[in-house]
């Protein structure tokens, strides 16, 4: 019997780039990052450290999180400088 999925690329190769964007990892999240923009200095350390490129920056300013891809690891909250501490992690409701 021919398999319906035999047109899949051979050997599990993904024959194009950038496909990680299509995979929503936000559903894995238990803790959600919350930013207090009154405290944030836009140092962008969170943007540098985020392993999922889920910190959104516009015109050189941190403006929030891409919750489709943020896994809630909390690295941003830990790396946010001690004097600022603008990011906190909250339980997903």
């Amino acid at each position: 019997m021919e398999d319906k999925k035999t047109e899949l690329p051979l050997g599990g190769i993904i024959p194009e780039g950038g496909t990680a964007h299509d995979y929503s990892t936000g559903g894995w999240r238990k803790l959600r990052p919350i930013v207090d923009k009154d405290r944030c200095t836009n140092c962008l350390i969170c943007w540098v450290m985020c392993p999922d490129s889920a910190v959104i920056v516009e015109d050189g300013k941190m403006v929030g999180f891409d919750l489709e891809h943020c896994k809630g690891c909390g690295i941003c909250a830990v790396e946010c400088p001690d004097k600022v501490k603008a990011i906190t992690m909250e339980e997903e409701g």
Binding site: K5, G12, T19
Partner: peptide, 14 residues
């Protein structure tokens, strides 16, 4: 020019 991924994870769907 034609980037590809080898040895990717596959789940029970494929």
């Amino acid at each position: 020019d034609k980037p590809s991924t080898y040895g990717a994870m596959t789940l029970p769907d494929v």
